[in-house]
Design a protein around this nucleic acid. Structure first.
Length: 266
DNA sequence: CGATTCCCCTGATAGC
DNA sequence: TGCTATCAGGGGAATC
C-alpha cells in the first residue's frame, strides 16, 4: 500500500485540498489544515504501525490512520466511487489523491513533524514486528510482564505496534495459542511460535494486499486477497482447517476473538 | 495495572 | 416491499 503510494505521489506537489469530513481531523483545525497543506511537496511516504505518514516540504507531516474502512485512491474515478472521499488532494500531476472512508473512523493528524511524532499516538508506540530489530527476546521481554490475555496484549499498540484484530486471531491460530492465555504464562516455545507466526502472518497480509473484509482497496480500487485465505477470523461455526472442530467466537476486551477450541488450548 | 464500556459512523442484516 | 432496530469494527477515553 505504502509502496504503491510512493510510486504514484512521491515528489508531487499538492495544488489544492478539499476536506469532506472535518471531524476526522485530530488536533488541527480545518482552516489550518487547508491553509498549510496546499503547496507542499510530498517528500516521503512510509508506514508507521497502522498509520501512513506523508513527509511534506517545510518540515510538515501528515499522518493518516485508515482504521478498517479507510483507503487511498489515485486517478480518475466515477462520482459513486469517491462519494465517501473525506480528503482530496489535487496533485501537480493533474490527478487527484483521494482518501475514502465510509465509516469516518479514520484519524488524520497534520502539523510540524516534531509535533506529530511527539503526539502520544506515535511516541508511545511499541516496536513494529516487521522491523529487523524486532527479535524473539524483545517480544519475550515485552510479554513476560503482561498479566492481560495474549489476544488483548497483541492488540495493544503500546506493546507491539501494527497488529489488528484480524491478524491477532490469525497469529494465535497459527501459533496454536488460546487467546485468553495470560501473556506472562507463555512458555519459551509458545513465545517462539507467536514470534514466528506474527512475522509470517503480517508478511503474508502485506503480500496479499490486505484482507478487504470490510473495505480495503489498493490505489486503483482493487481489493486485497487476504480475506479468502483467513483461517479463523469471521469463521465462527465453521470447521477448523486443521482438525474440523468448529471455530468459536468469544468477546475479549470488547473485541471479537475467533479460535479453534481444540488446536488452541489454555 | 487490567478489564469493561462507551463512542465515533454507516452499510449490512435481521425482524416485523 | 419497506421500514426500524441492531450490530460490527479500530482504538482511544473514561470508568470501574
Amino acid at each position: 500500500m505504502v509502496g504503491d503510494l510512493r510510486k504514484k505521489v512521491l515528489g508531487r506537489r499538492i495544488k489544492a485540498v478539499r476536506l469532506g469530513a472535518p471531524k476526522i481531523l485530530r488536533g488541527v483545525s480545518p482552516a489550518y489544515f487547508q491553509k498549510n497543506l496546499s503547496g507542499r511537496k510530498i517528500l516521503a511516504v512510509r508506514r508507521v504501525a497502522k498509520n501512513i505518514f506523508f513527509e511534506l516540504s517545510g518540515g510538515y507531516l501528515l499522518a493518516v490512520h485508515p482504521k478498517m474502512t479507510g483507503h487511498f485512491l489515485y486517478g480518475r474515478f466515477s462520482p459513486s466511487a469517491v462519494k465517501h472521499a473525506r480528503l482530496e488532494f489535487d496533485l501537480d500531476s493533474g490527478l487527484t489523491l483521494y482518501f475514502n472512508d465510509v465509516r469516518k473512523f479514520a484519524r488524520v493528524m497534520f502539523g510540524s513533524a516534531e509535533k506529530i511524532k511527539n503526539a502520544k499516538e506515535f511516541s508511545l508506540l511499541g516496536p513494529d514486528p516487521l522491523d529487523k530489530n524486532f527479535t524473539l527476546s524483545i517480544l519475550s521481554g515485552l510479554l513476560k510482564s503482561k498479566k492481560g490475555r495474549i489476544k488483548s496484549v497483541l492488540l495493544d499498540q503500546k506493546v507491539i505496534a501494527g497488529i489488528g484484530n484480524i491478524y491477532a486471531d490469525e497469529i494465535l491460530f497459527s501459533a496454536k495459542i488460546h487467546p485468553l492465555t495470560p501473556a506472562y504464562r507463555l512458555a519459551p516455545a509458545e513465545l517462539k511460535r507467536i514470534f514466528e507466526a506474527t512475522k509470517k502472518i503480517l508478511k503474508k497480509a502485506v503480500a496479499l494486499r490486505g484482507s478487504s473484509l470490510s473495505d480495503f482497496f489498493d490505489l486503483a480500487g482493487r481489493k486485497g486477497f487476504y480475506g479468502p485465505r483467513r483461517l479463523v477470523y469471521k469463521r465462527p461455526g465453521q470447521p477448523c482447517y486443521r482438525c474440523q472442530t468448529l471455530i468459536k467466537r468469544i468477546r475479549i476486551g470488547g473485541r471479537s476473538a475467533h479460535f479453534c477450541p481444540k488446536c488452541q488450548r489454555i
